[in-house]
Design a protein around this nucleic acid. Structure first.
Lengths: 148, 148
DNA sequence: GATTATGTAACAATATATGTTGCATGAAAA
DNA sequence: TTTTCATGCAACATATATTGTTACATAATC
């Protein structure tokens, strides 16, 4: 299956919103990400429910950040997306009728769980503010002022 | 995407082969796994190329183990399957044209790489022999002699 | 009221794993 | 030698999930 890039995409969008004073429309964000406005609305809808972003209709509407970037981690964003599956592999069946499969499941499940835990832990360690800070650090390093 | 269960399945098959003296046909293995014989041939073909199993045609033919179980790890099997992708998530683009995306990619890629490395490391720590030993340990514990 | 924007449903496109059918090939048995 | 049994492999079908697109309703501003 194709790899899920929603987390990557939504982080991209959020950082762009952080650089903007006013609201950004789905269309503007879609242009930045090279995708469709509906895709933007789709991935941001989960974040809106959590109160991380706000959306306004009509003239001058669009999306704005509604949270303290230093209090939101990648893990929070990941959960707001619906906690999509992290691993591309899994056990053939979770209720094995055969002792051989019990053994195989046990060996693999432990590795799978540890890998997932590691990912979530890493996500929990990174705040949106730290990403934004990294961005500005690199911006200065390159000597540019404008974002793409 | 549906989760890849080839590693789980092929391990199941290999342990069954380890319990058998003579060769096992694709059809017999398919019955054990509740799948199609062609699927068995497909997943085992990579292992045959690596010399982990052998296949014989005609009467009395089928699949047999062709390696020392204590020298083959789950990682070897995983590689023989073609090293399928481990993670269900990825970066939206690997060649970002935007500094924001560079920052996002950097943050995510590190976590992704570490999770993959952890999985491969775990796989490398487990031999087929240890799985087989675990199976026999449990077999005794349950007081059974026959495998499913 | 016209314009601009989101909200959402429905559908198409894409990718991947998995399952299935059909036929060729080779080995053993009759 | 013919039949049977088994793998090898290509081709197609199925299922699932992400992503992209179209269409229309809804709400807010001009």
């Amino acid at each position: 299956m194709k790899k899920d890039s929603r987390l990557s995409g939504v982080l991209h969008v959020l950082l762009h919103m952080a650089e903007q004073d006013g609201p950004l429309t789905s269309e503007a964000l879609a242009r930045v990400m090279g995708t469709n406005p509906v895709v933007i609305r789709r991935v941001l809808s989960g974040l809106r429910q959590k109160g991380y972003v706000r959306s306004e209709k009509g003239h001058g509407g669009g999306w704005t950040l509604a949270c303290d970037l230093s209090r939101i981690t990648l893990r929070d964003i990941y959960i707001a997306l619906g906690s999509p599956g992290l691993l591309a592999m899994g056990n053939r069946t979770e209720s094995p009728g055969c002792l051989v499969e019990v053994v195989v499941n046990a060996a693999l499940s432990q590795a799978f769980q540890d890998a997932e835990a590691l990912l979530l832990h890493r996500f929990g360690d990174v705040t949106l503010a730290s990403l934004s800070a990294d961005f500005h650090r690199r911006l200065v390093a390159v000597g540019k002022v404008r974002v793409k």
